[in-house]
C-alpha cells in the first residue's frame, strides 16, 4: 500500500515535470523538420517561469470565475493525468475514477475553460468557446465509444485493468482495436488543439480555437493554462501509449528496479509519440473549421463500428 502510494505520487510528479519538456521536444522536432534551428528544449520551462513572474493584466469586467478557472482546469487535468497508468498499473487510487470518469473530468475542465472564454465578453473569447464546444460535442462521443470498445474487450472500465489486459498475451491483433486506435488519435489531435484541427502556434487568426479562448489571460493565470494544456497532451499521449503499446509497464507486485525500468520505457515511448506527432503535424495542413466535423465524424463512426464489432463477436 505504501509502495503503491509512492508510485502514485511519483506518477503525479512525473507527468507535471515532463509536460513542458514534451512540448519542447515537439517544437524542436517540428523546427528541425522545417530546416529551422528551433528553440532550446527547455524553452517551455523558461516561458512558464517568465509568465509566472509577470503581473496579471485583468480585464475590467472579469469575474471571480475568470480568476479561478486556471486553477480548476489545471487541477481537473492533473487528477485525470494522475490516474493514467503511465509506467505502472499499481496506482493507489486508480479505482477512484474509471476511464469514463476520466473523460468526464476532462469534460469538466473544458466546460470551465469555455466559460472563462465567455467571461470577459469579447468576440474572440466567444468564437473560441463556441468552436471548442462544437469540436468537443463530436470528440467526446467518439472518445466514449472508444472507451466502450476497450471496456468490452477487457471486461472493465478501470484503466489499470484494461492496460493489464492489453499487456497480456491473449489479445493479438484485432480489427476493433485498430479502429479504436485511429479514433483515439483523431480525438487526441482535436482535444489538444493540434493540426489539422487547430494550430497551436498561430495567434490572432479567425481560424484558431483554443488560443482564442484563452486570449484574455496573462501572467500566472496563463502559465497555469499553458501547463494544463501541456499536461493534457501528456495525458492523451500516455493514454494512447499505455493502451496500445503497453509493453514494459510495471505491474502491482513488481520490484523497485522493474518500476524504474518502466519509467525509462515510458519516457522512450513518449519520445516516440512526440516525434510521431511532430512529423504528422509538419506534413499536413490545417483544416477549415467546418471541415472538422467531417474528420471527427469519421472518428465517431470508426469508434462506433469498433464497438459494434465487439457487440457482435468478442474475438473481432
Amino acid at each position: 500500500m505504501i509502495f503503491n502510494l509512492l508510485v502514485q505520487g511519483l506518477q503525479m510528479m512525473l507527468v507535471v515535470a515532463i509536460a513542458p519538456l514534451l512540448v519542447g521536444v515537439i517544437h524542436k522536432m517540428r523546427a528541425r523538420l522545417l530546416r529551422k534551428q528551433g528553440a532550446p528544449l527547455l524553452q517551455p520551462y523558461r516561458d512558464l517561469l517568465r509568465l509566472m513572474k509577470k503581473e496579471v493584466v485583468l480585464a475590467h469586467n472579469a469575474s471571480w470565475l475568470f480568476r479561478a478557472v486556471p486553477y480548476m482546469v489545471f487541477a481537473a487535468t492533473w487528477v485525470a493525468a494522475a490516474l493514467i497508468p503511465t509506467f505502472a498499473t499499481g496506482l493507489q487510487f486508480s479505482w477512484s475514477a474509471d476511464l469514463i470518469a476520466i473523460v468526464a473530468l476532462l469534460g469538466s475542465a473544458r466546460f470551465f475553460m469555455a466559460l472563462a472564454g465567455m467571461d470577459v465578453g469579447t468576440s474572440f473569447g466567444g468564437i473560441g468557446s463556441s468552436r471548442e464546444m462544437m469540436i468537443a460535442a463530436l470528440a467526446e462521443p467518439a472518445m466514449m465509444l472508444t472507451v466502450f470498445s476497450l471496456a468490452l474487450l477487457a471486461g472493465s472500465t478501470q484503466l489499470s485493468t484494461v492496460t493489464h489486459y492489453l499487456a497480456g498475451s491473449n489479445v493479438g491483433l484485432r480489427v476493433s482495436l485498430g479502429m479504436a486506435l485511429v479514433a483515439l488519435v483523431i480525438v487526441a489531435l482535436a482535444e489538444n488543439a493540434r493540426i489539422p484541427v487547430d494550430n497551436p502556434s498561430t495567434h490572432l487568426e479567425l481560424t484558431m480555437v483554443h488560443e482564442a479562448m484563452v486570449l484574455e489571460y496573462s501572467g500566472r493565470h496563463l502559465a497555469m493554462i499553458e501547463l494544463a494544456s501541456a499536461l493534457k497532451l501528456v495525458l492523451y499521449l500516455s493514454l494512447i501509449v499505455s493502451l496500445f503499446i503497453p509493453f514494459g509497464v510495471a505491474g502491482p507486485g513488481d520490484t523497485i528496479a522493474a518500476h524504474l525500468l518502466a519509467v525509462v520505457y515510458y519516457l522512450i515511448k513518449m519520445l516516440g509519440g512526440a516525434l510521431a506527432l511532430a512529423t504528422f503535424e509538419v506534413s499536413i495542413a490545417k483544416m477549415r473549421v467546418f471541415r472538422i466535423p467531417d474528420l471527427l465524424g469519421a472518428a465517431l463512426m470508426l469508434s462506433l463500428l469498433g464497438t459494434l464489432l465487439l457487440f457482435v463477436s468478442r474475438s473481432l
Partner: peptide, 15 residues
Amino acid sequence: ASRSLRRAPAWDCGF
C-alpha cells in the same frame, strides 16, 4: 509567482 495584478480594458486583440 508574482502576485501583482492590474485591471485594464479587455485586450481583444487590440480592438
